[in-house]
Design a protein around this nucleic acid. Structure first.
Lengths: 150, 150
DNA sequence: ATTTATTAGTTGTCTAGTCAACTTTGCAGC
DNA sequence: GCTGCAAAGTTGACTAGACAACTAATAAAT
């Protein structure tokens, strides 16, 4: 019996929830929430991406993305225009208003990531992120697979 | 600059969401959902615990716990009785009905944890869980702290 | 060229989870 | 004994997110 204890799920879940609480607290000064900041940060390095692509990038349902993007547009942080090469899709762009608050958002979230990992040394931090990356790839793959072979 | 990239939050979030999708899919045969199984599993090794304690144990708001426990009681999986030593609290107990489906639930969730970590060797798996434990402790601590010093 | 299958986006409905306000009970201190 | 104050639980209102069903547009198949 070589089980990775179910603790992995427990820990990632609890860390996720703590992060949401922190993010909501720290981001409300910008009118943002834990649900909206990932979209802003993703757009920063993916100008012109569409909603489906950003959904896949974040592993969040496209229904959530549609509503979240709508909110960001309402706030004037993001803009969307029809993709001239595909009339179904919208290309998303950061507006100056949105781009300007990214440094603070990024700093706040980096701060959080730094303090919650302060019990690890530099080597361990790198290892942790490396391993989570590997785990996520499998999780993304099997999330879909499992449905069919039950 | 020695930042743990914000990727830590991104990865834990995505892994969490994938796990929820899997859990919902695999647990629906038992009438359970991703939200209810942690309560069952926690009760297995914490007979007689109360709702506030279980909420802290799972890092989930007590409002959620109240509603989730109510559901488990309605299903006949859990029972609650007033703590004879504290009339405010209810002591929670697993019913036979609930206890009987735990092996399958546990197996399904262990399976998930095993497959998503199959890209890691045994030593790495242990390391990962150890580090997440450390990270979670800090996250739980600072989730509260940060609110006051902003 | 027309059917067929995919893909982007939207909307409705549901679960997961947080926060705030409240009630009841217990536990101080005096 | 009261007068606070903290803890257990509940409820309402809200955000985060998943899933299904749908429309419209593209791509593939024949």
């Amino acid at each position: 019996m070589n089980d990775v204890p179910i603790k992995l799920s427990k820990f990632t879940g609890s860390i996720y929830r703590c992060t949401q609480v922190y993010a909501n607290e720290i981001l409300k000064q910008f009118g943002l929430t834990s649900g909206s900041y990932p979209y802003l940060l993703t757009l920063l390095s993916n100008d012109g991406i569409n909603q489906n692509q950003i959904s896949r990038e974040l592993d969040i349902d496209k229904a959530m993305s549609a509503r979240e993007i709508k909110k960001l547009i309402r706030f004037g942080y993001v803009e969307k225009e029809i993709d001239p090469e595909d009339a179904r899709a919208y290309k998303l762009y950061l507006m100056e208003e949105g781009r300007s608050l990214i440094p603070e958002v990024l700093q706040a979230m980096n701060h959080w990531n730094n303090i919650i990992t302060q019990g690890l040394n530099d080597q361990e931090k790198k290892e942790l992120v490396r391993m989570l990356d590997i785990v996520l790839k499998e999780a993304k793959y099997y999330r879909c697979i499992q449905k069919s072979d039950a």
